[in-house]
Write a protein that binds this DNA or RNA. Structure first.
Lengths: 339, 339
DNA sequence: AATTAGCACTCTTGCATGTTGAGTGCTAAT
DNA sequence: ATTAGCACTCAACATGCAAGAGTGCTAATT
């Protein structure tokens, strides 16, 4: 399927892809010759291009046009021609600097990660908050807001805070609430949702209600709105491939939809995954590519981050950035969540 | 400036606008005649249309095309021809029902409000969390996450929760933290940021640091990312006026930008404001209109909500929905925040 | 056997031209 | 005040033509 190409073919394929990524114009044999500095004539290039087309790495939009890469071409490029892309030292430095300047807070970091990815890869970027598999309860608080309305605040491992209002049938004062909270803290702190539910205790009706709500809040449902940060949508709409309305809409729609998010690739932490042209799974994203990575601590708390752009995306920069940002976020998560 | 029109002119203007909103096509004198059921000839309509054009309420894109409304035309339509638009009873019922089924939580409500507005007005909708002017501190909590890392959780009036991690120079255990928290609670609960800062106390270095951070968290900065919920961007991109790339981008860009949000109209609670064609203030939104309202309790806690769509938007539905959702949200806020 | 010069061929792009139909604006009649 | 009627304008579409870009192939060259 992905046969070996001669060195010259590789070099030609590489140049076609790089120039097409840069210019969005089909690359002609003559243009390639000028850019490459190869010591051949345009006819030779043409012959090689024809071979690459037969093998499925290139196409041309019409008879008398230059060549553009196919999805298979991009795939070969990413896997065989790119090698290990590393972001230049100075860029890594600026990024790390920004992270260390930010406040010690997940939301800030996510925002920052999204901004950095969007800027360096000219794609739309997106990052989900790390999901803790079995979050452990750190602290419960019950606060009286109004006579018959209280606020339940849960602090989970890693400083995740969940909250919910509870309406009461009859008023309770803060003293009674604090007592209940103290009791629940004593019983449940240090446990996860499963352990809390299965622990059998003598509880009042009210305590049972609170316990139920706690368990609900601790069980990681699907992503909540606040748990995803996005950036760079405007930038990616500037690309010529989204000149037509329906493609642009498909992109925006997929980018915003939670369904899309939940169906995303399930790669392990530490690897960068590249999805080219929707790759069968997302039909409406046939002209888009994604570069994705999982970050955090495997088996404990992980999130997803990456960029979405046209198939004609600068893969080297995107992969480099995504990898580096994922590494940074992983260490951040490690620091906050502890071992 | 906005002279009185004859009844017939009003009726013609109204029909032109309504049909243009429905079809996105210039309205010709003949087409209007068929739709209106008026007992005149097309020539009469043409004459009246010419007058309306002279007065600035209509234009036509080229000589032999039908008429389309100008911004001034829309303005007249909204202010003089629409009257008090009220959403049909059954729609109001479904919406209210949805709200009462949702959990007792601001985030949920905002999400719901955004969805409802997007659906009924085919525009992009947006809602900001209610900003409390001078939030009062309800509760402080200090939780040890790791030996040298603690989490500060602040509960403010109305169940707003703010949090921040604090890195310590030397370890503190939970007992010491709870003591500090209890002390700070005793001193500061019930006060607002200004009062907290100006209260002079004998404080340790650590307590001073915590107090500073508290004051920071309580002072309402500009909108945080999580404080805005959006919906319906995809739908609005379906409209023909956003067929060209740059207009679409301008819309998306404005819709996402926090700068735009902060500069939005400052209307009092209870009124619905209609901004047509950017109205000078937003040049890049010249083909967009907004229908906005403030909700909450004036002088205490208010947020902004509304829809953004093409100038060719269904103003009646949009205004009706925005008004009703704003009312609902206001009562919700009232319930939660108390008097 | 690999490379290349050269040429025929294809297809886009741009421009000019003509035609049709929709719709207006105006004038003169009602 | 209204309207019939007609001249006029303009977008939209089709057609034809010329230029240019680029390929594919063949035959000559290294």
């Amino acid at each position: 399927m992905m046969a070996d190409l001669t060195l010259r073919q590789q070099s030609i394929l590489g140049i076609v892809i790089r120039t097409y990524i840069a210019t969005a114009q089909p690359v002609s044999s003559k243009a390639l010759l000028e850019l490459s500095g190869l010591e051949f004539s345009s006819a030779t290039i043409r012959n090689e291009m024809a071979v690459l087309e037969d093998l499925g790495y290139l196409t041309h939009p019409h008879t008398s046009a230059g060549r553009i890469p196919t999805d298979k071409g991009y795939r070969y490029f990413v896997e065989r021609l790119l090698g290990d892309v590393v972001l230049p030292l100075d860029e890594r430095k600026t990024i790390r600097h920004q992270f260390h300047q930010a406040r010690l807070e997940m939301g800030q970091w996510m925002q920052l990660a999204a901004t950095v990815m969007a800027r360096t890869s000219r794609g739309a970027s997106l990052i989900t908050a790390p999901q803790i598999e079995q979050p452990i309860l750190k602290h419960i608080e019950l606060i009286s807001t109004q006579p018959k309305l209280i606020l339940l605040v849960l602090v989970l491992q890693g400083g995740v805070v969940r909250q919910q209002m509870i309406a009461l049938r009859e008023p309770m004062d803060q003293v009674a609430l604090s007592q209940t909270a103290a009791f629940l803290n004593a019983q449940y702190t240090g446990l996860n949702a499963v352990a809390i539910r299965s622990k059998s205790l003598e509880l009042s009706d009210f305590e049972i209600e609170v316990m139920r709500i706690m368990v609900g809040l601790m069980s990681s449902e699907s992503h909540h709105a606040a748990d995803v940060v996005r950036d760079g949508l405007t930038g990616v709409l500037r690309e010529p491939e989204f000149g037509n309305q329906s493609d642009a809409r498909a992109l925006v729609s997929a980018f915003e939809s939670p369904v899309f998010l939940n169906g995303l690739i399930d790669a392990p932490v530490g690897t960068v995954q590249v999805v080219i042209g929707g790759e069968g799974r997302w039909r409406e994203l046939s002209s888009c590519s994604m570069v994705l990575a999982r970050y955090g601590t495997e088996g404990f708390a992980t999130g997803l981050l990456g960029v979405l752009g046209p198939t004609r995306m600068p893969y080297d920069r995107a992969i480099g950035t995504v990898r580096y940002v994922a590494e940074l976020m992983s260490t951040m998560v490690g620091e906050i969540y502890g071992e």
